[in-house]
Design a binder for these strands. Structure first.
Length: 877
RNA sequence: GGGCGCGUAGCUCAGCGGAAGAGCACUCGGUUUACACCCGAGCGGUCGCAGGUUCGAACCCUGCCGCGCCCA
């Protein structure tokens, strides 16, 4: 190693990278220096991402970690590219989840929210939020999220609440919000209505009971999984063209156990193929039955209360629905009305997405959004290309959704949330109050008790967070936002609602230009993670063990568009190895005088190895850019990993040792190339692994911070094909010699005397010292005695390597090695020969393809000849 | 039932018309002055099955068989 006195000394890197010791402080310094604070008055082009607001009760799970890694990578790259970047963080108030959390706490002290009263309870929730809410925000800091903390928002903030009231009023005045009595999804535990997407369906074991209504030839059999609802039946329905029941249509039957007589109606909706083709109709407890009821003017008979206890007078009154079910079946059985019972009967059952209670369809007066015009606009924005969905396969799913959206139930029977801004008057008046208006006062006036669905406020997020409805500088600068990133399972939650509201509120300007949908994170075997299975990965544990960079890199490396990703601890360990490799490579380069203080010398002064690695680097920059633009994060990672490890570390660093050992100008130019390549690679890696790259880069360059360093661009230099071919030759030659050594059992550290002959004939004369160095060949001395010859076929011809292995070689091992080479060559010769002997191929395939195959056959033929000669020359066993 | 997607090395996945790839795992060797979180060498695949198109198919088309997800 030569000492270089022209290079100022950089602080030395510690021998190993200890992420947990460094990451926190680095992150604080970035925030303190204001790198993540956006400037609305900037002239730079904007790049905006609003964080899909996590739940205030939540903590960072591995799906978040992936999504945040994506958003951080996108924003960090744009920042380096010179954009005015705003990544806006915050949380939503999670109406049901938060209220549940606080109610649970209250229950510990034997209280319910009703004991406190509404006002006090809401106060308590705010206190809860201050104390426990927002754990996830600290976890975001751990991960390195470059968010603008000065713009952090919460859906219940004053400004955002005003946005909610504003849009409610506007929609109300436009006739897009209305109040109606319909069947809604009711959670008997949370005591509130739910929208369709807050209900999770699963196939559960139930029962299918067939019940005979009526007597004799006027009887009719219906099957049901919810026998207890028969107490609320107000009709039987059959398909109008079902011949079996023509004689019954228009007649009446008695509903067993109730004595109530109900009509048999004909309705197109009934599926004659299912069961007996006849269904019981319970309009107040089933959405389909409700519609049948509407069509036929049937009464809606409610037989359960909000707790799902039976209210129908009689022996079942007061029973819970699940107690009532067997009781009703038993009573029917006693009357001889049960025709068949099937258990278990697997069928789809809806559950509350917050507490998993079985949802009860319930007739109820609620507030609704008429989504049709909004959904149409949301579809059009994607159809017109104003918003692009990545990956494109998801676009169809988006259309299917927005084109078939039911009206949205937005009222919730909760206390925590935005209260519906509607007042009712003593004479039946209904007044919607805007944010700048005074609600009506006086005798008999009162406000609607309900609050709005949390999604109603988070649907405004892309613009309410920027100050809307005020015409703020932020809104002007940063809306429409650039990318919305989320898991494809959340497509219908965030994306569609934000699209509908964004287009409506912002004069048809889309809320985001791109929607990126990542896959779900699964365990090592591709299984869904679940707490009960115990295969959940905690990203915080990974960060503790392997560092934030390795955690991020692992997730991004698996992020192939449209597909889920499997991860396991080994993956994270592999990513840590990569950061360690990068660390050691930089440490090596620095200890050998690598520098960015001197420019890379002009090309003609560089070696083939220099030009080769610089050309690869140029290609890398362009690949990384291309893949970033296409949201192909796995490919970005792969390209950088491959370049860094397999090309730069495995070959260039080794070759640079030879060049540095030369000393003088050669050493100096090599140091500049080393410095330059590392500088660029660290920049390219920074969006993925910000911490380790920042540490290495500031040490290497003395720069202020990689966060604000410019993003690399391609040089446009013409690729040096000759240098590339020479380095390929070196790699091939080195690998073949190493292979021989390995198979001969020569220790890697053992020096072997050898000669390389014929290098000049294949244009590799200058590379011989490198080859010797990488294969530990020593100069042949006076006693040099060739014990073995290798011949290595390269692009321009064969190179002969003569070795003195100090004694007999292992003939069998050598025969095995050569036989393998022969088999490969013969297979190649046969395959290429078959092609070339096929006139259809030579006639129809493009000339360059034919020429290529010809070249391969010739090379194979030469190789066969060479290997056969070597085999023949081996001593007989 | 409708839609989307997936079946490629032991595992997880790239490749999507002209020579089968990566990471991890595995085998052998290694105190090589950046790195054992490493280095070197190696093993491992009729690319789900069957047809078709093409000079040529893992890749395009059709059917089938498995698996996953979304919607009803």
């Amino acid at each position: 190693m030569t000492e270089n006195h022209t290079t100022p000394q950089r602080p030395e890197l510690p021998p190993s990278w200890n992420p947990t010791e460094v990451e926190g402080e680095l992150y604080r310094s970035w925030v303190d220096r204001g790198y993540f604070t956006a400037d609305a008055s900037s002239d730079k082009p904007p790049f905006t991402i609003v964080l899909p607001p996590p739940n205030v009760t939540g903590s960072l799970h591995v799906g978040h970690a992936l999504n945040h890694s994506v958003m951080d990578a996108l924003t960090r790259r744009r920042r380096m590219q010179g954009y005015e970047v705003l990544w806006l963080p915050g949380m939503d108030h999670a109406g049901i989840a938060t209220q549940n959390a606080v109610e649970r706490d209250l229950a510990h002290s034997g209280m319910s929210r009703h004991d406190l009263g509404r006002e006090k309870f809401v106060e308590r929730v705010w206190e809860w939020k201050a104390e426990y809410g927002g754990r996830i925000l600290d976890q975001m800091r751990r991960l390195g999220d470059g968010v603008d903390w000065s713009r952090e928002r919460f859906t219940m903030d004053e400004g955002l609440s005003q946005a909610v009231q504003t849009i409610f009023k506007r929609l109300f005045d436009d006739g897009l919000i209305y109040r109606a009595e319909r069947i809604i999804n009711w959670c008997p535990r949370c005591q509130t209505a739910l929208s369709d997407i807050e209900v999770d369906h699963s196939d559960d074991d139930g029962e299918l009971v067939s019940i005979r209504y009526g007597e004799g030839e006027n009887s009719i059999v219906v099957a049901t999984t919810r026998a207890e609802t028969m107490l609320g039946d107000t009709a039987i329905a059959v398909h109008p063209s079902d011949e079996r029941y023509q004689h019954l249509i228009g007649t009446e039957v008695e509903v067993p156990l109730t004595g109530r007589r109900v009509p048999i109606v004909a309705d197109e909706h009934v599926d004659p193929e299912f069961g007996t083709g006849a269904v019981k109709v319970t309009p107040a407890h089933d959405p389909n039955d409700f519609e049948i009821g509407q069509r036929h003017g049937l009464p809606n008979l409610t037989i359960m209360d909000g707790r799902a206890n039976i209210t129908a007078p009689g022996p079942f009154e007061g029973l819970d629905r699940f107690e009532a079910r067997p009781a009703v079946v038993a009573a029917l059985r006693d009357e001889g009305r049960v025709v068949a019972e099937k258990r278990p009967y697997v069928h789809s059952v809806g559950h509350c997405s917050r507490c998993n209670t079985v949802v009860e369809p319930r007739l109820s007066l609620q507030w609704w959004v008429r989504v049709e015009p909004l959904a149409k606009a949301a579809g059009d924005a994607v159809r017109d290309g104003r918003t692009t969905v990545h990956p494109p396969e998801m676009t169809k799913r988006y259309f299917d959704w927005v084109d078939n959206l039911h009206d949205w139930c937005i009222s919730r029977q909760l206390w925590w949330g935005h209260r519906i801004p509607v007042w009712y008057g003593p004479a039946g008046e209904v007044v919607c109050v805007g944010p700048d208006e005074e609600p009506p006062t006086g005798e008999g006036w009162y406000q609607d008790e309900d609050v709005l669905d949390t999604w109603f406020s988070s649907g405004l997020w892309p613009f309410s967070t920027l100050g809307w409805p005020a015409k703020t500088d932020d809104l002007a600068k940063f809306y429409p936002t650039s990318v919305l990133s989320t898991g494809y399972d959340i497509l219908f939650f965030w994306v569609t609602r934000m699209m509908m509201f964004g287009l409506y509120a912002m004069d048809d300007a889309q809320p985001f230009d791109h929607v990126y949908l990542h896959g779900l994170v699964r365990d090592a075997n591709g299984k869904k993670m679940s707490k009960s299975v115990g295969n959940v990965v905690d990203p915080l544990e990974w960060m503790d063990t392997y560092g934030a960079d390795a955690t991020r890199f692992t997730l991004l490396r698996g992020a192939n568009p449209g597909s889920d990703l499997a991860v396991a601890e080994e993956w994270a360990a592999g990513s840590r190895s990569f950061t360690t490799k990068l660390w050691n490579a930089t440490r090596f380069a620095l200890s050998n005088g690598a520098t960015t203080d001197r420019p890379v010398p002009p090309r003609e002064e560089l070696t083939d190895a220099d030009r080769w690695i610089l050309d690869l680097l140029d290609q890398l920059v362009s690949d990384v850019d291309e893949q970033f633009e296409a949201f192909q994060f796995a490919r970005v990672c792969e390209a950088l990993y491959h370049f860094t490890w397999d090309e730069f570390c495995d070959w260039y660093l080794e070759l640079s040792k030879v060049q540095i050992a030369e000393g003088g100008a050669r050493a100096e130019s090599t140091q500049a190339v080393l410095g330059h390549v590392l500088d660029v690679v660290l920049r390219l890696l920074h969006p993925l692994t910000p911490f380790v790259t920042e540490t290495l880069w500031t040490t290497l360059t003395g720069g202020e911070s990689l966060v604000i360093a410019p993003w690399p661009t391609t040089t446009g230099a013409e690729r040096d094909a000759v240098a590339a071919e020479r380095i390929d030759g070196v790699k091939k030659l080195v690998t073949e010699i190493r292979r021989f050594r390995s198979e001969q059992g020569i220790k890697p550290s053992a020096k072997v005397a050898g000669k390389v002959r014929g290098a000049c004939c294949v244009d590799l004369a200058d590379q011989v010292p490198s080859v010797r160095s990488l294969t530990r060949l020593t100069e042949p001395g006076d006693e040099f005695a060739v014990t073995v010859q290798l011949e290595v076929a390269l692009a321009k011809g064969a190179v002969k390597v003569e070795l003195d292995t100090s004694g007999a070689i292992d003939v069998e091992a050598e025969r095995k090695r050569l036989s393998k080479d022969l088999a490969v060559a013969e297979k190649e010769f046969a395959q290429t020969g078959a092609k070339l002997n096929n006139p259809a191929f030579t006639d129809k395939a493009p000339a360059d393809v034919v020429a290529k195959v010809q070249g391969r056959r010739d090379a194979a033929a030469a190789e066969i000849e060479r290997v056969n000669a070597r085999l023949a020359a081996l001593p007989q066993a």
